[in-house]
Amino acid sequence: MIKNISNLGDAALYCDFGNEVNKSINSQVIKYFKTIKEKKFEGINNLTPSYNKLIISYDLKKTNFKEVKNYVENINAGDSKDINSKKLEIPVCCHENFSMDIKRLEEILKLSREKILENFLNKEYFCYMTGFIAGMPFLGDLDENMRAQRLETPRVKVPKGSVAVTEQFANIYTFESPGGWNILGNTPLDIFDSSKENKPNLINPGDTVIFKEINLDQYKNYNE
């Protein structure tokens, strides 16, 4: 449940669900997000769910903090149906052409390349949120022995499709962008497709993702 509602500036509500990062808190956030999204309250522009917060921004010309807060406090999201999630398999190629940070991870984690991939692949990860850049999924949780910090100096350009890890999370760079996560491989799948206006994201909050390894030939032929 929402522990506290405050204002983020004069045009957004900051709904705090707690400080821990876990599926149970995040599922609450997603339930609120889906319930409010469906109800289409006049004046609400945007909803941004994250691990344990939900930010609701509104058009100050149409409504205000008091009105939106009152509305959110009287919503019964706890009763809403399950979060309607899907299970997805994401092919990933971990050939040395792509796994730019595997050596760094071997050193930090004190694990061999094989062990790192064994720990990472064929496991279920939960999508906590999408964003930062369009469609980027934040997936968790990685095994305890797989948790590494971000690069000290982020790369200026991370290739599109890069599958990367930091701390307890994995993500996928949906297009070329700057970034500091440790890159393990690359997926040939389009995770974000802006030409599909109704469903641009392949992975949505609440979904479950499993990474399956493919080899370089399979990667090259994937979209043919």
């Binding site: 983020l8 500036g9 941004t48 691990y51 344990n52 917060k53 930010i55 949120m129 930062f132």
Partner: peptide
């Protein structure tokens, strides 16, 4: 902080 939503002006 744990990553969370932003709005313009933050």
């Amino acid at each position: 902080i744990k990553s969370e939503g932003l709005i313009k002006g933050v």
